[in-house]
Nucleic acid binder design. Structure first.
Lengths: 230, 230
DNA sequence: CCAAAAGTGTTCCACCTACACCCATGG
DNA sequence: CCATGGGTGTAGGTGGAACACTTTTGG
């Protein structure tokens, strides 16, 4: 390894938030340091010497926003030479999906402020973070169509309508309630409980739960989850 | 950027080869330097200071094997702390698909030898390259099901049976010729020419060509390319 | 009794599946 | 005329799509 190389390795996280019947949002920080001081950016930062990439992204996310996540999926690695005006930085990006209200967000290291922004009303972003965000959004939507990643976002027991709203919100389209329900139920990884929702208004709903065993078994065989929109 | 970090950034390429009615193979090099001297490995190496990741992987591939490629798709970034026994190295991996006979392969920098290996008869690989290979193979098969990436592998004008063999080989399964043909033709991105194949044996075949415009248009709208195996 | 959301069934149609024989050529 | 691969149609079944009214509760 005679070659001289001075490239830094960073990680960035695109964390989407979805709250029951809410909108889809992304978690951003306002940078407290130059470059791009005071500009909004994705949480992230340099990888430590003996830290895995995944550990790094979780650590940065926690430090900068207070959000802790079990699972972030690797998205893409951005490495164009001029991404960062200082050194050359290669960024390995990750994305994930959480319920914002589960966290009290608070800025810390290198960030002046952390905040959720609706995905269709983003501020100007630092570096090439808009590109990273776009890549993540596309992947999120695509993934939802062949893997129900949405279950982490629902309570352990949820009314069926929560699932409908989740899909409709993330994909930004309306779905046919009857057909959606038939299809989901046909997969067998959502099961009815015998509990009833505490009513908000209207008819009380049965609660459902997610059967992870059946879901994992299906995933192994590869299934395609085609949803029809109206 | 006060932080000290000494991580190197490398790229590795998983290049699959498919030849008409041949087998699926991967391009490997035999390492000429330590560590893992004389062990087979994926072509790859460190990224140069002012070089994009994609340029780096193409350059390394060319240097080590003589193979030049227009398009390699980013696969995954491997960054566990102990991947490389020397420094810490983060590897951005790429994969692609070519016709081996189009190239005269020849080893050069850091490689003693470059050679195609059938995918189901690989030697022991250096570093975590087996993991990288497995990831690539899975992605290749998955991708073929929803995006006909196979067209680069066929002549500009090809008999339909070439397409059948391509799919059957990469996916490792037999397909129903009639149904496969109907399905492909229904998409509209394969068009009949009025030319006839120079005969090898048996009945001469009509030649077909690929309509990239129609294909790209379809891709934008997202289509799923479900193939039934016998 | 009105508002709000949950729950539910059927018909039609498109597409997928299974399946086997004849065709055109070269040797 | 034989071997080799190319080319083709149909019938039955499955599953997706479209579609609207009734139920249960709270206010």
């Amino acid at each position: 390894m005679a070659l001289q190389q001075d490239i830094k390795v960073a990680v960035d996280a695109v964390v989407f938030g979805y709250e029951s019947k809410g909108n889809l949002s992304v978690l951003l920080i306002r940078r407290g340091v130059d470059p791009f001081k005071n500009t909004w950016a994705l949480p992230g930062g340099l990888v430590l010497e003996h830290e895995s990439l995944e550990a790094a992204v979780k650590r940065e996310l926690k430090e900068e926003t207070g959000v802790t996540m079990d699972y972030l999926e690797q998205l893409y690695t951005f490495g164009k030479p001029k991404r960062d005006p200082r050194n050359r930085v290669v960024s390995v990006s990750y994305f994930g999906l959480v319920r914002p209200n589960h966290f009290k967000i608070k800025a810390d290291t290198d960030a002046d402020e952390a905040k959720w922004f609706p995905v269709n009303d983003l501020p100007k972003l630092a570096f090439d973070h808009k590109t990273i965000f776009n890549t993540a959004e596309k992947r999120l939507k695509g993934k939802l169509l062949y893997q129900p990643i949405g279950f982490d976002l629902l309570s352990a027991e949820f009314p069926f309508s929560d699932l409908e709203h989740l899909y409709a919100t993330i994909l930004g389209q309306d779905i046919d309630r009857r057909n959606f329900r038939k299809k989901i139920m046909s997969f067998g990884f959502v099961e009815e409980t015998n509990k009833i929702q505490q009513v908000r208004s209207g008819r009380p709903a049965k609660l459902f739960k997610f059967n992870k065993q059946k879901y994992d078994a299906l995933l192994d065989n590869g299934f395609y989850f085609d949803i029809k929109f109206v």
